[in-house]
Write a protein that binds this DNA or RNA. Sequence first.
DNA 1: TTGCAGGGGTCAA
DNA 2: TTGACCCCTGCA
Length: 289
Amino acid sequence: MKITPKNNSVIIENISDFDPTHTFMCGQCFRWDKEDDGSYTGIAFSKPVNISCEKNTLVIKNITPDEFNSQWKYYLDLETDYNTIKNFLSFDQNVKTAMDFGWGIKILNQEIFECLISFIISTQNAIPRIKKIVSTLSQMYGKKLEFGGKTYYAFPSIDELSGVTEDDLAPLKAGYRAAYIVDAVNKIKSGEVILENLKNLSYTEAKKELMKIKGVGPKVADCVLLFSCCKKEAFPIDVWVKRTVQTLYLNENAKEKEISSFAAEHFGEFAGVAQQYLFYYARENKLGI
DNA sequence: TTGCAGGGGTCAA
DNA sequence: TTGACCCCTGCA
């Protein structure tokens, strides 16, 4: 990985296994949008940035080399060797097919609070609407940011959301999820749930901790652990993955518990990576519908 | 135009 | 284990 600063950008050469479209459109994040030129603009660490990747060269606009090294390298999971993971998982022909299709998906390491609130909002909801609600929440409570002549809003911090009520959140039209957001903010603010500790806990302990929050069940907890806490063994089971595993590996009556055990045994420490490829493949190809 | 089904689940009984 | 759930969107 060779890093070169240029104007307000950072150019990184010798990048492997990274495709921005597959990474940002595979459903793991909700704050990235495609530009007309094919690049992606998104917000993280209270900063809007623009990312493009041609061949093996990645260009990130609006950051410094220091910010790349301390934040974005990790956010984009560039230090994980995906070749090893792919080799590990390629014994499974279905995952191999899904990996060929969704080539270059990186499992992002997002900010935990944002990831948590976003996936609380995601329950029984469609992706465009999830994006809209997250965006409105940011506009209401987040910092105003400027980039490329446009206005963006950072995802609000815990302090910025501290004290919000269900009534305050009514403009989001998030429905019953508003109460869950309030509960999450309160439990984090009071120290009942400490997000910073999650990475240091075992997968099982961390999941238990997250599920203390209302609106956080097994699926949402697994998403938060996989997409923001480095727990690549987390295997979120949603309707798509459920249908896929039932069809390809088990039977149509298989329950979540059985699917979960199967994933842990079959895909092991990289179950979450397999899940994300299978999910993306299933959803894009409308498998099982 | 209206009505209905379903959406990356979770809660409570 | 099962139904209800807030609200929006897509589709007859």
